[in-house]
Computed example of a mutant assay.
Amino acid sequence: MPARPAILSDPMIAVLVAATALALLLPATGEARGMAQMVSNGAIFVLFLVNGMRIARGEIARGLVNWRYFGPLLLWIFGVMALGGLAAMQLAQQVLPPLVALGFLYFGCLPSTVQSATSYTSLAGGNVALSVVGAALVNIVGVFVTAPLFAALGGGAAADIGYETIVRIGLILVLPFVIGQALQGWTREWVMERKARIAWLDRGVIGIAVYVAFSGAVEQGLAGLFGAGEWAALLGLVVGFLALAIAGAWIAGGVLGLSRADRIAFLFAGSQKSVAIGAPMAAILFAPEMAGFVIAPLLLYHLLQLVVAAPLASRLALRPR
């Protein structure tokens, strides 16, 4: 049996905590925030360039062929989960600041994680190959789908996804990915040989995006907006969303008649959300003074999904095949 992932030692958790703490203690404000935003945008460009280099075109092709699994998975992630985010936002608006409530719709529209969904699928005895291909395909689709889907469902409450925003997404997310795909024949082997270092590039870019986002929120009085009641409401809504996502993805896999191994892969891909896409995209979609509020539910959801996934995967692994 594969080793159990160590939640508390996950470097990504440490990066998120450190970035948030630094923003609370030493936020980038004024001209410094503008410079930090430029650094963040440059780092995001490099990250998606590398993503284009390392996601094999063959994996994308295999995903497109296996429509019986990937069609329902995409519909679940960008349909059911997005509508769930819309419902959660409407509930959250009753007890939380509007931008924080908007964060539920935002993370509902995001693709699933790559590394953790694959790791927990492996731990639970699921179809790892399917999980790897699915993660690649879902995240590529998310780059193109998340922003317009979020705008369509959010209406006037969402960010203004106008021409300038579309151009920024194209230049900072899509263009480098396409360049990476074009260079893949010459660069993929070099990138794959340095997977450990590339993983730290991922974490570093996400950390920068979170720091810039929360710096803006701190400057706008983040601490003064949250009392004990608001924190309890935020936690309760996130826990409820996660519970429904896990139960729903598992039931959906059963309704689809998937094998147990494929159903496990569907469970983790369908219930987890990607901070690796969410934090950088929020830095592009929202002004710095807004982004920190919007990604607050995503960061909490990301932490809780890891905490819940470890015992869930271990329990699934103990059940008969």
Rank of each mutant, 00 (worst) to 15 (best):
F241M: 15
E193M: 13
I179W: 06
A252N: 07
F268R: 04
F241Y: 14
Q272W: 03
L237F: 08
G221D: 12
Q181M: 08
A157F: 11
P280F: 01
A261G: 12
G270E: 04
A269E: 14
E164N: 14
I169Q: 03
G257P: 04
F226C: 06
V167W: 06
G270Y: 03
F214M: 15
A182V: 13
G221F: 09
R263C: 01
F226I: 02
V174I: 15
A233K: 11
I251Q: 13
G185N: 11
A213M: 10
F226N: 02
L175T: 06
S259N: 12
V238H: 00
S215R: 04
V239A: 13
I169A: 02
R260A: 10
S271A: 15
T187F: 12
A209N: 08
L222V: 06
E219F: 06
A243W: 10
G180F: 02
V167M: 09
L256S: 10
A233W: 14
A245V: 14
D202R: 11
G254H: 08
V178W: 00
G185H: 10
A158I: 04
R203M: 07
W250Y: 15
G170C: 07
Q184L: 05
Q272C: 11
Q272A: 11
K273D: 01
V255M: 12
I284S: 01
S259T: 15
V167L: 13
G204E: 00
G227E: 08
I264M: 04
A243S: 13
G253K: 04
L256A: 14
L235M: 13
V178N: 01
A232Y: 10
A209Y: 02
W231K: 15
I208R: 05
I246T: 09
G229W: 06
A223K: 13
A199D: 11
G162S: 08
V178S: 00
Q184D: 10
V212W: 02
F177I: 09
V174H: 06
G254N: 07
L258H: 12
A232F: 08
P280R: 00
G224I: 00
G227W: 05
W231I: 13
A245D: 12
K273T: 08
A247I: 14
R260E: 13
L201W: 02
R260P: 15
E193I: 12
M281C: 08
A209E: 04
G257D: 02
I172W: 04
G278S: 05
V210G: 03
I172E: 02
V174C: 09
A232V: 14
I166Q: 08
E219W: 07
R197E: 00
A265G: 08
V191K: 11
G221H: 10
A196W: 09
L235F: 15
A182Q: 12
G156N: 14
V174N: 04
L175H: 03
I206W: 05
M281G: 06
A282N: 03
W200S: 03
L173I: 05
W200N: 11
Y211P: 03
G270S: 05
A217G: 06
G185R: 12
L175F: 06
I198M: 12
I284W: 05
V205N: 03
V167Q: 11
A249Y: 09
F214P: 06
F266I: 02
I179A: 15
R263T: 01
A228M: 10
W200V: 00
L235H: 11
M192E: 09
W200E: 00
L237G: 06
V210T: 00
L234I: 09
I284F: 03
I208M: 01
S274C: 07
V178Q: 05
Q184T: 14
